[in-house]
Computed example of a mutant assay.
Amino acid sequence: MNGGPKMSDEAKELIIFLDCGDTIIDEGTEVRDEHGTVIEGRVITGADTMVRTLAERGYRLAIVADGTAQSFKNLLTQNGLYDYFEVLIYSEQMKVDKPNPRMFKAAMGAMELGERDRGRIIMVGNNLSRDVRGANQAGITSVHLNWTSRYPKTSLDPAERPDYTIEEPLALVELADRLNEELAAKKRIQA
């Protein structure tokens, strides 16, 4: 576990799982070494501000991404974002790719979240067949970052329909605040 910076005393109800490629890092800027490990890449405009703002507001953040640990460590460290994530779950360590539910269960387990917490989690990613399908199958709210043309933007498969769609990384801050307020209001009513 990473135990990144905790900058807000206010605990948020909403928990945010994020993909990395084409969600935080622009895959088109990635440079790989001879072994295929990503050694550098640039953030999508606004993605670094999105991550920092969410962390500063007290949201618990996890990376749930397909790829190698070293690639993501390189990318997130050089862009100053590594320490903002409480948990980093990669397909390399899990031996499966998204949409396999083990990816999401591993992030939940590492964050000490149980079944009753599923309704508090959102998965944000750019890929309908991996991020959105995986979140939907895991009973987690899906958010499609409709930013890149590298992957399909629509699907006829109901399992790949996102609960929410945003067009750019910074739009996640407003959506997260809104969803968190809805969760907090429900909790107050139940109390």
Rank of each mutant, 00 (worst) to 15 (best):
N2W: 07
G3V: 08
P5H: 11
P5W: 03
E10G: 00
K12L: 14
E13I: 00
L14W: 02
I16D: 01
L18V: 05
D19P: 00
C20I: 12
G21F: 15
T23I: 06
I25Y: 03
E27L: 14
G28F: 00
V31F: 01
R32M: 10
R32G: 03
D33C: 00
H35Y: 15
H35R: 03
G36A: 04
G36S: 05
V38S: 09
I39P: 00
E40H: 04
G41I: 08
R42A: 15
R42M: 14
G46A: 04
D48L: 01
R52I: 09
L54M: 08
L54D: 02
G58N: 12
Y59T: 07
Y59E: 12
R60C: 04
L61R: 11
I63L: 14
A65N: 10
S71P: 10
N79V: 08
N79G: 06
G80D: 14
D83V: 03
I89C: 09
I89Y: 02
Q93P: 00
V96D: 04
V96Q: 05
P99E: 10
M103D: 04
M103R: 10
F104M: 01
A106C: 11
A106G: 05
A107E: 07
M111V: 10
L113G: 01
G114E: 12
G114D: 14
G114K: 02
G114M: 01
E115F: 06
D117Y: 09
R118L: 13
I121G: 00
I121V: 14
M123V: 01
M123I: 02
N126F: 02
S129H: 11
R130K: 15
D131A: 02
V132H: 01
R133T: 05
R133F: 04
G134N: 08
A135Q: 05
A135L: 05
N136T: 06
A138R: 01
T141M: 13
V143D: 05
V143M: 09
V143C: 07
H144Y: 14
L145R: 05
N146C: 11
N146L: 06
S149K: 08
T154R: 02
L156Y: 02
L156S: 13
L156R: 01
P158Q: 09
E160Y: 07
R161K: 15
T165Y: 13
I166S: 07
E167D: 15
P169I: 08
A171G: 13
L172M: 14
E174H: 03
E174P: 00
L175R: 12
L175F: 11
A176H: 03
A176L: 09
L179A: 09
K187Y: 08
R188M: 09
R188P: 00
Q190S: 15
Q190C: 06
A191F: 11
A191G: 15
